[in-house]
Amino acid sequence: MNLIDLGVVINTLWIGLIYSLMAIPLTISYKVTRVLNFAHTSLVTVGAYVAVILSLVYPDFFSNVFVALIAAFFAGAIVAILNHKFVYRKLMDKEASPVILMIASLGSWIFLKYLIYSVISIVSKVIKKDLYFAVPAFRYTLNLNFLGISNPSLTYSLILGISLIVLTFVVFYRTSFGKAMRAVSDNPQLAQISGISDESVMTLTWFLCGGLAAISGVFWAMFSYASPEFADSLILQVFAACVIGGISSIALTILGGFVIAGAENILMSILYNLIGLDLSFRPFLSFLTLLIVILVRPPAGAAGGLPYRLKFKRERKWT
């Protein structure tokens, strides 16, 4: 028996990519706004459902993946901005501590979750289609076939996902907006003195992060399925990926996503084939990995982030 099949490797790639895509906006929003946003999963769900509902109701227009992705992006972005304006901004104006903001985000999460349930319930009755377990009705026109993957939704989400990650890097490190975001995240007061508007950077950050989260939801629904709670059951893995990345470094967050995915798939496969460990131990493995990573290699982030630490060491050597 092979320890690892090709299928397992492909799954690792795909799930790792999805974890990364979901974790990146969480990391960026935390870096810039200092809100550990639990309502993140609701943004992911909103994205998935906007694509599903539009593609079912207006198949002529929204069965095109790209159009649906753009629609989902704006839907997620709008919800994130509204959430910021009506919840986080109000609390920030009262100088609420990060803990209060985090608890407020838990509140938003539960509020949005039940709002999503209500909308799905109503729309489901109106269009007379099952939405509690739904897949977007996309037409995959290009026949992309590589690694022997026959499922077009998988290849589409892999290729588009990788492109999106590259695009995020470009926006964050190569544009003036990205520079402004990084400035606000490093030192909000200094950024403000330098003429960077704190509030407009935050709004733009939520726009970007809400949109990215929503798109990751569409990718998930393409290959797996959308249910009102799929994103909630992913939140622990996504947070684990963020924590491995120190909720600070985008590159390390991506690594974190793949480490968690690898533990769940490749490690699971090896243990299953070697010692017959039950498949139902899969969730356990991802958190075991998280614990090991935290203990062996204390995360960056709160302690300054790996890039900062390297920089710090380098500076010390020079002095």
């Binding site: 397992v8 498949l279 131990f281 969730p283």
Partner: peptide
């Protein structure tokens, strides 16, 4: 057996496939 309540079962299916083959 497989764990319940997971958001996706792609990994379980990959394992099932290798077991069926084995």
């Amino acid at each position: 057996k497989y764990a319940t309540g997971l958001p996706d079962y792609a990994s379980e299916v990959a394992q099932l496939s290798s077991q069926v083959k084995a």
